[in-house]
Design a protein around this nucleic acid. Structure first.
Lengths: 340, 340
DNA sequence: CTGAAAGCGCTAACAA
DNA sequence: TTGTTAGCGCTTTCAG
């Protein structure tokens, strides 16, 4: 394993420089020489030292991926997607999980990926101005998923539009009292996705209220922390309200799952008593008969991966955000509002 | 950003060697000197070049994690666990997803982590002898989760014991016709975990059959591919059998979820008509009222992470596998066998 | 098309 | 305690 370039050079009867050129496939090496070198390298089981190469070239063959969570469905799917395309291109993936706010602060203070990566991908994490500058200061291409940042390519979905479509579906079913389970300020890691979905909820719900000539119920906007447990709690709160919603729109399937559970425990039927609509099309949404907004999660990752590769090879690419499509998936958890 | 050690040295009025020592916190630097260096480094926003450092020391500050999947609950949880402890120790995590068998072959052929990592963690992936030698040839400490390999530290659970306990629970409930949903040869990526659970199933089930003086039903051993869809299919097959099981033990919760779904669609009640028992204690098992065997997934990852750190700092540690505890979690999907 | 030589930025002896 | 001097293994001019 401690083979070096010179060993290969000696065996092939050429200079180290030629071996380097041959191994990297750069033009300007005679075919015969190249194959001789390749044979020698294979014979020795030679593999290049990334550190030395990186020191000499400044490139690392590695991309840094910054995530707020790795063990949530949405994030693990995306990571899987980018990993696949990077791997196919021979790029390694360095994973950085922020963890929590102190962890995030530590990350940006230490910036452990500095000089370790050729490009950076940030998942669903709106950056502060300082953070963005720090990342751009790495002078490596920056790509984001789910957010848009100055100086970065981005891929995402139309959160607002998708959420509005979902809400309109509920309205068409006759629902007027619609609650929202999502997230409000202060937002854990600064996510804006929930806010965009909340905004769409509000627009549609408030419009309905205007039509009905009544005040929107502020307590219908609840926080579920994007977890099953949070969704459960939020739904419990809603059930305690004097005026109960007949439909609930959750900003993630996990929270919708929690809502389903609370409803079942409370002896309420879905969708007869309450309609529930989620967001994501989680693997288990189908199993739980949850109507939801499907977003192409793995594809977001792949798309971002390809963007990274394009930037790495210096490709001049469209800088406008790539917006992937979503679609409403109707299952058994939504139905026309039943007369009270 | 293009600061180098010498810049710091100049500013602090010392030599590069001293800066190097001070920055790494090695002993043998006067306190005053050290703080002067630190101040200079901070002023310049200096950060070490990992490539250069790595070239000089042979260490990379990075651990490679090899996984068969990243977007499955079990794996993403484990990754999250190791990542947390490595991060706290300032170690970066290079993620390698094998993908499929060709991907696996490519990985071991190219061995992209060669010279990129100081240690390697392998998740639930029994290695061929060749693969093991390749990995050990990296001469970096090797740790595995869920398998045991010569020359590697390992952490895992007692699959066989846990599965046997689960099976005995079903027997105690009066079940005699118990089916298994898991995996049989040929195994996708060579997993042995399913086999250990299968073996436990067989022991208990065959014992029951002996007691009853009848032949075990071979068709009760089904393959579910560790996915929800696979579990659904397996359960469908079981329902088509002339002699139907009254209880089903699935080697993973995901497969159990699929089984639940098939049963519900077939109009059968759980647990009245069929008991279902899973394995993992997936986040959603609670929601679906699934009885299951809980294993400390995140802790497996953390434990492995700590093992890696210990090996990296040259600690001589117990080489025997660390076995973490499991426990049966009884929910609503298992009940005494009802008279037919 | 190929080789020689000079780094890339840091660390590790060895001296002082 | 600090500085000097060689590398670590590869890439990249620049000659040839």
């Amino acid at each position: 394993m401690p083979e070096k370039l010179d060993d290969v050079a000696r065996l092939a009867g050429v200079s180290a420089a030629t071996v380097s050129r041959a191994l990297r496939g750069v033009p300007g090496v005679a075919d015969r020489t190249r194959s001789r070198v390749l044979a020698a390298a294979a014979e020795l089981g030679y593999a290049i030292s990334p550190a030395a190469s990186s020191l000499a070239t400044g490139r690392t063959g590695t991309v840094g991926v910054i995530v707020p969570y790795v063990d949530r469905w949405y994030f693990s799917r995306i990571i899987s997607g980018v990993e696949r395309v990077l791997r196919d291109a021979g790029i390694s993936l360095l994973l950085y999980n922020l963890g929590d706010n102190p962890g995030r602060a530590r990350f940006f203070a230490g910036l452990p990926l500095r000089r370790r990566v050729d490009a950076v991908l940030v998942l669903s994490l709106p950056l502060t101005e300082v953070e963005r500058e720090l990342l751009l200061g790495l002078d490596a291409p920056l790509v984001t998923i789910g957010t848009e940042e100055l100086g970065a390519d981005s891929v995402g979905i139309d959160d607002h539009g998708a959420a509005a479509t979902a809400m309109r579906h509920l309205v068409q079913l006759g629902h007027r009292e619609i609650a929202f389970i999502g997230e409000r300020d202060p937002i854990p890691l600064g996510f804006t996705t929930p806010l965009r979905r909340l905004a769409a909820y509000r627009e549609v719900y408030h419009q309905v209220c205007r039509e009905d000539g009544r005040e929107p119920e502020a307590a219908f906007e609840t926080a579920g922390g994007f977890t099953v447990a949070g969704g459960e709690r939020a739904m419990s709160g809603l059930l305690g309200l004097p005026r109960r919603p007949t439909a609930v729109f959750a900003a993630s399937d996990e929270m919708a799952f929690g809502a389903l559970r609370t409803l079942r425990r409370a002896g309420l039927r879905v969708p007869e008593d309450v309609s529930v609509l989620g967001f994501d099309n989680h693997d288990l949404a189908d199993l739980l008969e949850l109507s939801t907004v499907a977003q192409p999660v793995a594809e977001l990752g792949e798309r971002a991966g390809r963007l990274l590769l394009a930037r790495l090879s210096g490709g001049k690419i469209a800088t406008s955000p790539a917006i992937l499509g979503t679609r409403l998936v109707l299952r058994g958890s939504t139905a026309p509002r039943s007369p009270r």
